[in-house]
Amino acid sequence: MANLPIRDRAGNVLVDFRLVAEEELGRLAEHVGVPASLVVAIHAGAVLMMFDSWRRQWELPGGTREPGECPREAAVRELGEETGIHGVDLSFAAVAEFDLTKPERRELLAVYRTRLQVAPRLTVNSEALDFRWWPPSEPVSEDMSPLDAEIARRVVRSADS
């Protein structure tokens, strides 16, 4: 695992990663918004990464909450929309804290995980142009989000301990 903070090529920074209870999201959101959720899908020791059509990099499935959605609902919806994976149990894993650019802001993202017993059929779409199963023990490639890779590593490590 890398020492935090770490920065990506766009200047976004992963500031902190906290193992907290899901119930603490409301309290944390009073200070910093929790506008999005990420999902770490694990199968056979590897993490599902999708190639994002807009950012042109490998990253974790996830995205912005819609009006009225809680972080868990956003995670379930985004996982389905971006990958075609439906009907899996998600466990709350952590909160990731970011300093983001364009526009400049501080955000918390809710991070969920799921362990898949069978490799799912994945659906290429307008958001996810491709998929790969990335072993967190491997180096982060130039075309992968170092922030998402670090989150994945920390989630896998916490799930295995």
Score class of each variant (00 low, 15 high):
Leu129Asp: 01
Ala159Trp: 14
Ser137Lys: 13
Val118His: 04
Ala21Gln: 13
Val76Ser: 03
Thr64Trp: 07
Val124Pro: 02
Pro103Val: 07
Met1Gln: 08
Lys102Thr: 10
Arg154Asp: 01
Tyr112Cys: 05
Asp130Ser: 13
Thr101Met: 11
Ala119Pro: 05
Leu147Gly: 06
Asn125Pro: 05
Arg106Asn: 05
Glu104Gly: 11
Pro35Tyr: 01
Glu127Ile: 11
Phe51Tyr: 15
Phe98Gln: 06
Val39Asp: 00
Glu127Asn: 12
Asp160Leu: 14
Ala29Phe: 11
Phe131Pro: 03
Glu107Arg: 08
Pro5Phe: 11
Arg115Gln: 09
Phe92Leu: 09
Asp52Val: 00
Ala29Ser: 15
Met1His: 07
Gly68Leu: 03
Asp52Arg: 10
Pro67Ala: 12
Asn125Ser: 12
Leu100Pro: 02
Arg65Pro: 01
Ile42Glu: 06
Glu69Pro: 02
Val39Gln: 06
Leu38Ala: 13
Arg56Lys: 13
Glu150Gln: 10
Val39Lys: 02
Ser158Phe: 12
Pro67Phe: 10
Trp134Thr: 03
Glu78Lys: 12
Gly33Leu: 09
Leu4Pro: 04
Pro103Gln: 10
Glu104Asp: 15
Asn12Lys: 00
Gln117Phe: 09
Ala110Arg: 08
Val32Leu: 12
Ser161Val: 11
Glu69Leu: 07
Asp143Cys: 08
Gly62Gln: 02
Val88Thr: 11
Ala149Gln: 08
Glu104Arg: 14
Val40Cys: 04
Ala41Leu: 03
Ala29Glu: 13
Arg154Asn: 03
Arg113Ala: 12
Glu73Ile: 01
Gly26Gln: 07
Trp134Glu: 01
Val34Lys: 10
Trp133Phe: 03
Trp133Gly: 03
Ala152Pro: 07
Ala10Val: 04
Glu66Asn: 09
Phe51Leu: 09
Gln117Arg: 14
Leu4Thr: 08
Tyr112Gly: 00
Arg65Asp: 01
